[in-house]
Design a protein around this nucleic acid. Sequence first.
DNA 1: GTAAAAAGTAGTAACGATTACTACTTTTGA
DNA 2: TCAAAAGTAGTAATCGTTACTACTTTTTAC
Lengths: 124, 124
Amino acid sequence: MANYSKQREAILHELQNRCDHPTAAQVYEGVRRVIPNISLGTVYRNLAALVESGEILSVAVGDGKEHFDGDKSFHLHLHCKCCGAIIDSRVNDEKIKGIAEFDGFTPENSVCVVYGLCKNCNKQ
Amino acid sequence: MANYSKQREAILHELQNRCDHPTAAQVYEGVRRVIPNISLGTVYRNLAALVESGEILSVAVGDGKEHFDGDKSFHLHLHCKCCGAIIDSRVNDEKIKGIAEFDGFTPENSVCVVYGLCKNCNKQ
DNA sequence: GTAAAAAGTAGTAACGATTACTACTTTTGA
DNA sequence: TCAAAAGTAGTAATCGTTACTACTTTTTAC
């Protein structure tokens, strides 16, 4: 049922086989090496479906593009405002503010977003 | 120097006087009540300048729009995937995963982004 | 004070990431 | 096995954001 199409499987595979946080366009470029005539619209549609089904994560860093992460384990994302790099940091057990100290990264600000359902929407 | 123009002051004032997380368009609507012929481009330009100078925060929740926050104190943002609400949660001293429990909110996923400079960019 | 330079603005055009749409193909299930 | 359902390629349209142009306000130097 889910992931039956070879396009969706190739997209999921592409995401799980790379350790960065590609945009839809970057996923498109990667998958094109396997399915040369895949459509960009197909990539967008399947990425949205995979996020919806919880198989991948969407990461918003405020650069105007949506990034995707095949690694669903909980971790922080350190975003360099200079080069735009998105660096994984996995130190669950520390407090948020201290957590950003990671491999020479200098934290300036942080915006943490937790996705879920608010009280009102839970009632429905 | 900074904030000398009445437009920029009105934009900052608008943001600090509301407790939600408006988009540029919503800030524009609000400021138009004070400066009716203000340009949307002016709102965008000044919001970017205020983020750059650290007077306000930019919050990306992955809905395709940039949201702004006049409250710079560290806090989590709980984003309802149903109604799109962005709810403040200020419980610095707990661990991230537990933090999302807040007033009936059911957390499903979280993406925390820390802004700063990575090791390479620090050297420059 | 005043005039030139610098910075900001209104209004509009352009851009680019994303979404919608259409005709076609593949899969599913009775 | 064939009709209904779901998915796809390719393209057009949408919409948040940015760039550009002519104009206004502020600053600075004399």
